[in-house]
């Protein structure tokens, strides 16, 4: 899983990203002409977007512009919505994931997701993390499973806080801890891509900072796509940014470039807070 990219480690700050476009010639996910409809209403219009591996791509834009809808295309969560129809190709590892032959259940084990509100299962901390490995049969033994739980919790930066109370109900954690638990739960399935839909919008600044640190850490192993309403957050954690407006992809590029020197007027208006 981690053997594909062994060359230059990803840049750690937005300022040192000279090699970014070069990596984009081999994007992890390549979206081509995505159209999404809710019933008769079209929510996304002809979006084509390459998503690089081992970096964070931020999706920004005013409320209702289709960020969540687009994100949910990437793990076919839109399948769970009755009225939703997705057209276009999303190429991942040479396969079109919108193909009827692709099993969304398997796809979702490769593309994890973290939601806006922390949504731990009403089970213990341990069971929350071990649930994914269990249903996918990833662990051969109990010790194996214990190891996976610990590794996931460590990666999510939660291990030290919960190692003494793994059997406590997950709902007893604080909001920020719960969100990190959800990240750990997503990691435990050993995905290659992690989608995050406003993961910090229910959290206070301190918890947010922790999650952002964590995202920066996770970037070294995973392909991350994050939806956020906070310009600062997009600037802090992402390497690439895509600006959506009314279901259209207005502009995409290096986060640096988008925030300092946007090509489009609408982008500039949005990031300077003139609308949205």
């Amino acid at each position: 899983m981690e053997s594909t990219v062994t060359s230059a480690p990803p840049a750690t700050s937005p300022g040192t990203q000279a090699n970014e476009p070069e990596r984009l010639t081999f994007p992890r996910i390549e979206c081509r002409d995505i159209n999404v409809f809710y019933g008769d209403k079209q929510a996304i219009f002809d979006i084509s977007l390459p998503i690089p591996d081992r970096s964070v791509t931020a999706l920004i834009g005013p409320s209702g512009c289709g960020k969540s809808t687009f994100l949910r295309c990437l793990n076919r969560m839109n399948d769970t919505i009755e009225s939703c129809r997705v057209e276009g190709q999303i190429i991942m590892d040479g396969e079109n994931i919108n193909d009827a032959a692709i099993d969304p259940v398997l796809l979702r084990s490769r593309v994890g997701m973290v939601f806006q509100k922390p949504n731990p299962f009403p089970k213990s901390i341990y069971d929350n993390i071990s649930y994914g490995p269990r249903i996918h049969g990833l662990a051969a033994s109990r010790e194996d499973l214990d190891g996976m739980v610990e590794k996931s919790l460590r990666r999510a930066g939660l291990w030290e806080e919960v190692k003494d109370r793994l059997t406590a109900p997950a709902n007893s954690l604080s909001g920020g801890q719960q969100q990190r638990l959800c990240i750990a739960r997503a990691i435990a399935v050993q995905p290659e891509v992690i989608l995050m839909d406003e993961p910090c919008s229910a959290l206070d600044p301190v918890a947010t900072a922790r999650i952002e640190e964590l995202i920066d850490e996770l970037r070294k192993r995973y392909c991350i796509v994050i939806v956020t309403h906070s310009m600062q957050q997009a600037a802090r954690v992402s390497q690439r940014t895509a600006f959506f407006h009314l279901g259209i992809l207005v502009e995409m590029g290096e986060t640096d470039q988008i925030f300092t020197n946007p090509r489009e007027r609408r982008t500039e208006d949005y990031i300077t807070g003139r609308f949205g």
């Binding site: 979702r108 509100k117 949504n119 731990p120 649930y131």
Partner: peptide, 14 residues
Amino acid sequence: PQTLRDAAYAMGAT
């Protein structure tokens, strides 16, 4: 809550 179902589906649960 629907978010619990979403969480499970998003992990690849049937």
